[in-house]
Amino acid sequence: MSGEAEIVRDILSNARRVVKTEPLRDGVILVNGADLKPEPISWLWHGWLARSKLHILAGAPGQGKTTIALAFAATVTTGGRWPDGSRCPAGNVLVWSGEDDPADTLLPRLMAAGADPKRVFFVTGSRIGGEVQSFDPARDMVALTEQCERIGSVRLIIVDPIVSAVTGDSHKNTETRRALQPLVDLAASMDAALVGITHFSKGGQGGDPTQRVVGSIAFTAVARVVLVAAKVKGEEGDDRRVLARSKSNIGPDEGGFEYHLEQSEPVPGIYASYAAWGDAVSGSARELLTDPNEDDDGKSSALDAAADFIQQVLGQDVVPSKSVYEEAKEAGIAKRTLERASDALGVKKRRGDGAKWYWSLPKSANSANNANVENMADLPTPINQDGGECA
């Protein structure tokens, strides 16, 4: 063999040794902090809508939550200006609504807000085996991701209501977190802001608005920003609507904007509402959304909020007391307030096997109790208050 041939052979042999690698092993993936580069939050609307993050937009019925979300969509599709005057880069918008029809409700509202309809895409279902079926995020998220990649430049995703994404019990923390994750992953892969719309629970006037979001605390725990919309009385007795930040883990968590719901005729004979933005306002969401004319020291409001929380968490189920206490702590509800509210509701507290305690609502508070509640009769007789309760 010539010298040149030996050199070539050695080069090829070394190349094969370099290319040859061990197969990737299954297991936990760790990333060393030194290998990461700090990155700032990427904002769609600075301080309000962050790319790749989940936002909750909550409020009582009739406050224009969907109309506000569509105002966001209009700004994105046209590269318009946000209520604070800052410019938004133009992009596409994805809308999944389980409550409003795209043709007779959503599109007219988008047009009234000045949106570019060519940049808005509605999720209306899935085709399985040639048949059209309802969109199921647990089944169809991969296909939806492929569609978003085909569309390109999806910068805003609206889910109305966000509870539509939860196939299980939306009042259970673990089930809700698991159901929301595919949507959060979709937003992250698209570098889009995800806005989920939901309602306020009854009561709680004067309390923390974040605690009034219907469903599991997971909705507001997973969300990086919680926005609330409400109509309140001004100091002079006039009505005003306010969009405020109730929570933010990634930016300012106070301040807001006044808004008005106006009517227009985007197409002859078709009327639709749109959000007209007003002045910026300062203060926390709790301060902004509290009626200044209401005589309330806040104690009754906190108790009402805790009672509503208990009814949401327990529902028709028998729930371990430890879970109730943990979720209440995440929601910012004091243990003493929680226990006072449970006493007011007549919550049944029974000890099961070992030292575990369970809570359930009495039939008077929930006439639709299921078989789980009936099974409470099989548990031992509760120990009196002097015996204490194991949380």
Rank of each mutant, 00 (worst) to 15 (best):
D26Q: 12
D378Q: 09
P23S: 12
Y325N: 05
K172P: 02
D84E: 10
G98D: 05
W277C: 02
A74Q: 04
A187P: 05
R150Q: 08
N369G: 07
S126T: 13
A5D: 14
D10S: 14
A221I: 08
V19E: 08
S13F: 12
R241D: 08
R9A: 11
P102V: 08
D185E: 13
Y271N: 10
R178W: 02
G332V: 04
P161S: 11
N384A: 09
S300A: 15
A138Q: 06
K233M: 13
L180M: 03
L288C: 06
V120E: 06
V166N: 03
D101S: 13
I7H: 09
Y358L: 02
Y274V: 11
G62H: 01
I333W: 11
F121R: 12
V319R: 03
L243Y: 13
S52H: 07
H55T: 15
E149M: 15
A188G: 04
D343E: 14
A391N: 08
E99S: 10
I383F: 07
N32D: 14
I56R: 06
A244V: 15
E146V: 13
L156V: 01
V93M: 06
E39D: 02
S170R: 07
V214G: 05
E236V: 01
L379A: 06
V28D: 07
N14S: 13
T176V: 12
V93D: 04
M111C: 06
K348M: 12
D191G: 15
G346A: 10
G206D: 07
K231A: 11
S97N: 08
A193C: 01
W82I: 03
P108L: 14
G129D: 13
I310L: 15
W359V: 00
N370S: 11
L156E: 04
A138P: 00
D253W: 15
A365H: 12
N32T: 06
R336S: 14
E374I: 13
H46S: 09
I56S: 02
